[in-house]
């Protein structure tokens, strides 16, 4: 034991290799390997008669994706939903996080953090289900608007609202963490030097806010982009990228085409992640 220990102590590279081997093996084999298989199978096709997967290179899936109107429409709709959800979350989260970090007293602040954290532990499905009840025909929201059918009901709008509801804490927490690190004295200094609230916000708060918002947006954007469960629960007939993938795996039993569709959100998220990596937002996660 001690011989091995001192041997390892003298050979840090060996220690590093020991530490990295199992996790990397797992992530590279189980995850990157799976992603690679997915990518490769996107170029396969399915025999229309037998339903068997034909393992031969073909661009047919991507040709279909690019040529048929419905796929472009669904991609744009999903992007729009993800962007709208991210926007709504930023608008709601920023004042809340600012209040928590800069206005509330420190005793009160801890309770607010707990209040924002607790719903994160409540099940995703339960929250979506709660909104299904809220938005039901003749449900509480309809009653609020004066009778069955008066509320927004299920559909695209409901999808955006519910996704915003689901991911809101993921936006509040990074913004709060960022603002908390901003010393109050900086705000006071800015005011002492004659800056008005607006100028202080632009020059002092915003540089802290932007990386935090980007960190939060990785969650709100990515989680919305791939969602197909909430859409099924409150979206009515609305379809997003996830629904198409799901339909092609399940009912259509066309795994290669589902894989081809799934490359769309991967591409979008990889571009997004590479773009924000430079901003230092990944450190905020």
């Amino acid at each position: 034991m001690s011989v091995l220990g001192s041997y390892l102590h003298r050979h840090p590279r060996l220690r590093l290799a020991g530490l990295l081997s199992a996790p990397l093996l797992w992530l590279v084999v189980a995850y990157l390997g799976a992603l690679a298989v997915l990518l490769v199978s996107a170029f396969w096709t399915v025999n229309g008669f037998t339903g068997e997967v034909v393992r031969e290179f073909s661009l047919q899936n991507f040709r279909t994706l690019l040529s048929e109107e419905v796929y472009r429409a669904v991609t744009l709709r999903s992007l729009g939903v993800a962007a709208a959800v991210t926007g709504i979350c930023v608008v709601i989260a920023t004042p809340m996080a600012f209040f928590m970090a800069k206005v509330a007293s420190s005793k009160y602040r801890n309770w607010l953090v707990i209040a924002i954290l607790t719903p994160l532990w409540a099940s995703y499905l339960v929250k979506a289900y709660a909104w299904r009840i809220l938005l039901a025909n003749g449900g509480p929201i309809d009653t609020l608007f004066g009778g069955p059918g008066n509320g927004p009901g299920y559909g695209l709008f409901a999808t955006i609202i519910v996704l915003s509801y689901l991911w809101l804490p993921y936006m509040i927490l990074p913004i709060y963490a960022g603002l908390e690190r901003l010393p109050d004295s900086m705000l006071e200094a800015s005011a002492d030097l004659g800056a008005r609230a607006g100028r202080t916000f632009r020059a002092v708060v915003l540089p802290i806010l932007i990386p935090s918002v980007i960190a939060g947006s990785i969650f709100t954007f990515s989680l919305s982009l791939g969602d197909y469960i909430t859409v099924q629960i409150v979206g009515g007939k609305t379809q997003m990228i996830g629904n198409l993938v799901y339909a092609n795996i399940g009912a259509a039993n066309n795994l290669p085409f589902a894989a081809a569709i799934a490359t769309i959100p991967v591409l979008i998220m990889v571009i997004y992640l590479v773009a924000v990596r430079r901003s230092g937002a990944l450190e905020e996660l």
Binding site: Y31, L38, S222, D227, I241, M269
Partner: peptide
């Protein structure tokens, strides 16, 4: 970070097809 940064459906279908 990738497994949670990518949409869940991608992770799911990747593992499924693999």
């Amino acid at each position: 970070i990738l497994p949670i940064a990518l949409p869940g459906i991608v992770t799911g279908i990747a593992l499924d097809s693999a």
